[in-house]
Computed example of a mutant assay.
Amino acid sequence: MQYQLGDAWVVVAEGEYDMHSVTPLADVLTSAAVEKTKVVLDTSGVTFADSSFLNLVILVHQTTTLRLAAPGPQVRRLLSVAGVDTVLHVRETVEDAAAS
């Protein structure tokens, strides 16, 4: 699901993301990054993410203003272990991410 919230374009991610399942999300985020100036990735529904997801997030972050919203413990741990939690813009809620 995707929708406009203020001046941000929100992409909702749900389920598991690995090398076999990340392509649809990659297509949506890549398209949004080209067309929008601020993209929010709602990660509240992500139950598993590996380096494929992390790579996608970093690539999109380099293309546009990307905010990660509402990450659960699994996504937070992935970001922390990779050392990108201080580089990426992570916010507690979608609303906070869209407003920042």
Results as ranks from 00 to 15, higher is better:
49 A>R: 04
41 L>N: 02
4 Q>T: 13
50 D>E: 05
63 T>W: 14
71 P>Y: 06
58 I>F: 07
34 V>S: 10
58 I>W: 07
8 A>S: 07
30 T>A: 09
7 D>C: 00
66 L>G: 04
59 L>R: 13
61 H>F: 14
12 V>C: 11
39 V>F: 05
83 G>Y: 10
3 Y>R: 12
20 H>E: 00
46 V>K: 00
53 F>A: 02
94 V>K: 01
86 T>G: 11
65 T>W: 08
91 R>K: 15
31 S>G: 11
67 R>T: 07
57 V>L: 11
35 E>M: 10
71 P>F: 06
45 G>M: 08
66 L>T: 06
40 V>L: 07
13 A>E: 10
24 P>M: 06
92 E>R: 15
32 A>I: 08
35 E>H: 07
49 A>D: 08
18 D>L: 10
90 V>M: 13
41 L>T: 00
86 T>E: 11
90 V>I: 15
57 V>Q: 03
23 T>D: 12
57 V>D: 01
65 T>V: 15
5 L>M: 12
79 L>E: 10
11 V>C: 13
88 L>A: 03
10 V>P: 00
79 L>V: 06
27 D>H: 11
59 L>P: 00
95 E>S: 10
61 H>Y: 13
2 Q>N: 12
3 Y>W: 04
66 L>F: 06
11 V>Y: 04
45 G>L: 05
92 E>N: 11
72 G>V: 05
3 Y>E: 04
88 L>M: 07
94 V>H: 11
65 T>E: 13
24 P>W: 06
100 S>N: 14
32 A>H: 03
85 D>L: 11
49 A>P: 08
63 T>I: 14
70 A>D: 09
27 D>W: 04
50 D>G: 10
40 V>D: 03
51 S>P: 05
14 E>D: 09
6 G>M: 11
28 V>N: 13
68 L>E: 06
17 Y>H: 09
76 R>Q: 15
64 T>M: 10
64 T>S: 10
19 M>I: 04
55 N>V: 00
72 G>K: 08
39 V>G: 03
46 V>R: 00
60 V>A: 10
64 T>N: 07
44 S>E: 09
17 Y>R: 02
68 L>I: 13
62 Q>L: 14
